[in-house]
Design a protein around this nucleic acid. Structure first.
Length: 595
RNA sequence: GGUUCCGUAGCUCAGUUGGAUAGAGCAUCAGCCUUCUAAGCUGAGGGUCGCGCGUUCGAAUCGCGCCGGAAUCACCA
């Protein structure tokens, strides 16, 4: 409609004022709720053609449009704003198309489909996943769905940080204090078991360092010479040298962790097409760096460490390989990126990684560019914000880390409590009930996190996250369940709706409002894709649910006497349900039929 | 100190190609279930959009300068 209107207005300017209005001068927007009308033309930019007052210009154009364009039934001018009123018949025709549409997002939204690789999750194998990972996973997975829905080819990948000194720490602690504990023997989830030993290492290590400081060493010396730290370093050297005993232990403990991660991923409903392991890609990164050194892009210091000078890019000199030849963090990212490009030939590679690593990704991009990879322009660091608690940042030292598994369980428990209290599922069996509780608990958690602009830091308030009223996932799920209930009842009473809404059906203001909102779905999805923001979809779903609830409250659907109006209302309900379901699906949120 | 990001109601957040009287939810107060699911709906109070200057017919939105907060600037990952 907007584009047709623009065309008509352009024509009006030509006929009325002999002017040629450029596209950006014709500003159409939806009329604000408190004014009469559907679409509004901002007339200020057109005054240069009319050479008249804003009011007079608005009236002249309004008259012209009403006379020549049947879809416009009237207009009013307030200050410099021309509010156009659209005929019911036009809305009905528009809505009728939506009813029969099978694909609500429209895969054809994008004219140039791209191959997009998306990396998210990126866990370390020494600790279980926490709240920060949850945000990361949810954003990454939702972006995958949104970009796919727009017609792109999207590959979900994960890079697992499975090597390094931090991994050795948990291995060493397990060896020393573990009493050969296993997930089976303890009943603990593997990632939690390994995490326990990582914490144990840090505790013992700190005791040793404190002891040495009492003996007069300064902090750095104490940290470096603590026996545990020395042992961990020796273990890393053995690992890099391929020591069988160390490798066996490493593989055993990592396999415990992976089993634990898989469980958490399954609970969250996220997955990957390909998982990369740092232990498999860092060597490739080293080769690339050594190769680039030969070409003279990099330089070697006297201690034989390898560096790149990025001062021309407004960055620093950056270390790429240590003096002992071992890899640093960025080494593996270089290797991984090259491997991925070779395999998939991506147009874009989106890294869903926290904003604390902004500098790292600037460097990564600059390094790849300097080495000569033109595709490095397609690397995008999707820098999402930190999750903080009401009392500040999560700190492992203070034990304020919110564990992912715990949180998911708590959400399910809360959902169970609330549901049982309301007692609407009396005829469900236990499994069916649990399934609903799961959907609601996870829906609440996912929506709570995804409704916030991903780029901003957010505060996670546990008390608010378990509130299922207002702007929450369960509110939207409830609206959906309510719609399903109406449709079931319609079915039982043999009231069928059909696609043919009579064009002379009278529309109420609320009904027009709903139609307008529904047709905005696609626009919101493509905006979410362009801006990499699931929050746009989340907030859209909320607005639609709220609007529908008002409509539901104000009007009877099944009780409506006039069959064509009843049919329209049923169709509105059905399409609203479909759009809510699709929108929430894009966020990875499941919708219960009843709750 | 350099770089990047952020600052909107008591709290959590929406709000951009600059547009009309800045919106929700939570919390507080007052109402609505004999009728399609009350996890809902209606109403009230609550704002110098951090501060100042500038650009413009028009600024929460753009520019500059302050103030406040976060992240980062490792031979850690």
């Amino acid at each position: 409609m907007e584009s047709i209107l623009k065309e008509k207005i352009r024509e009006a300017v030509k006929v009325l004022y002999k002017g040629d209005a450029a596209n950006e001068l014709i500003q159409i927007q939806e009329t604000r709720k408190d004014f009469k009308g559907d679409f509004t033309l901002v007339v200020f930019p057109l005054l240069r053609f009319s050479k008249n007052t804003p009011e007079k210009t608005g009236e002249t154009i309004g008259n012209y449009l009403t006379a020549t364009f049947p879809a416009i039934k009237g207009y009013n001018v307030i200050k410099g704003f021309l509010n156009l009123e659209i005929s019911d018949a036009w809305w009905i025709e528009n809505f009728s198309k939506m009813i029969s549409e099978s694909n609500l997002f429209g895969k054809s939204l994008v004219s140039n489909p791209e191959t997009i690789l998306i990396e998210y999750s990126s866990p370390n194998t020494n600790k279980p996943l926490h709240l920060g990972h949850i945000r990361n996973n949810l954003i990454g997975f939702s972006l995958y769905r949104i970009l796919s829905a727009c017609g792109h080819r999207v590959i979900k990948t994960n890079i697992v940080n499975d090597r390094g000194i931090h991994i050795c720490k948990s291995m060493l602690a397990w060896q020393k204090y573990g009493n050969v504990e296993t997930p089976e023997s303890t009943g603990m989830k593997g990632d939690h078991l390994v995490g326990k030993y990582y914490v144990m290492f840090e505790k013992e290590y700190k005791l040793q360092a404190d002891e040495l400081m009492k003996k007069g060493l300064d902090e750095d010396e104490a940290r470096n010479s603590a026996p545990l730290m020395k042992e961990a370093r020796e273990m890393l050297i053995k690992w890099e040298a391929g020591d069988k005993e160390v490798l066996d232990l490493w593989m055993k403990m990592n396999s415990w962790v992976y089993a634990g991660f898989d469980e958490t991923y399954r609970a969250l409903g996220v997955d990957f097409d390909e998982i990369y392991y740092e232990s498999e890609t860092y060597q490739h990164g080293k080769d690339i760096i050594l190769d680039a050194l030969k070409k003279g892009v990099l330089y070697k210091k006297d201690d034989s460490s390898i560096w790149i000078d990025l001062t021309a890019d407004n960055l620093d000199n950056k270390l790429l390989l240590r003096s002992d030849g071992t890899a640093v963090y960025i080494t593996q990212d270089i290797g991984t990126a090259v491997l991925r490009q070779a395999k998939y030939g991506f147009n874009k590679c989106i890294y869903v990684v926290g904003n604390e690593q902004n500098y790292h990704f600037q460097v990564l991009k600059a390094v790849l560019k300097r080495i000569g990879y033109k595709w490095s322009d397609g690397l995008i660091h999707f820098s999402y914000g930190m999750v903080e608690l009401p009392e500040g940042r999560m700190k492992s030292r203070e034990g304020t880390i919110v564990d992912a598994d715990d949180l998911i369980n708590e959400m399910k428990i809360t959902a169970r409590e609330v549901s049982l209290e309301l007692g609407k599922l009396a005829d469900f069996n236990e499994d069916e009930k649990e399934e609903v509780f799961r959907k609601i608990g996870l829906g609440a958690l996912k929506y709570f996190i995804l409704k916030v602009d991903p780029r901003k830091n957010m505060t996670f308030n546990p008390a608010e996250s378990i509130d299922f009223n207002g702007n929450t996932g369960p509110f939207i799920q409830y609206t959906f369940a309510r719609i399903k209930s109406v449709l079931r009842k319609a079915d039982q009473t043999n009231i069928k709706y059909d696609n043919n809404i009579l064009s002379d059906t009278t529309l109420g203001a609320k009904e027009i409002l709903l139609i307008k909102l529904l047709r905005n779905f696609k626009i919101n999805v493509s905006e979410a894709a362009e801006g990499y923001s699931p929050a746009i979809v989340a907030n859209y779903c909320y607005e639609l649910a709220r609007e529908y609830n008002q409509f539901y409250h104000d009007f009877s659907i099944l009780g409506e006497e006039n069959p064509s109006i009843r049919n329209l209302r049923l169709a509105l309900s059905e399409v609203t349900g479909r759009v809510l379901g699709s929108g929430m699906w894009l966020l990875g949120i499941e919708m219960p039929e009843r709750m």
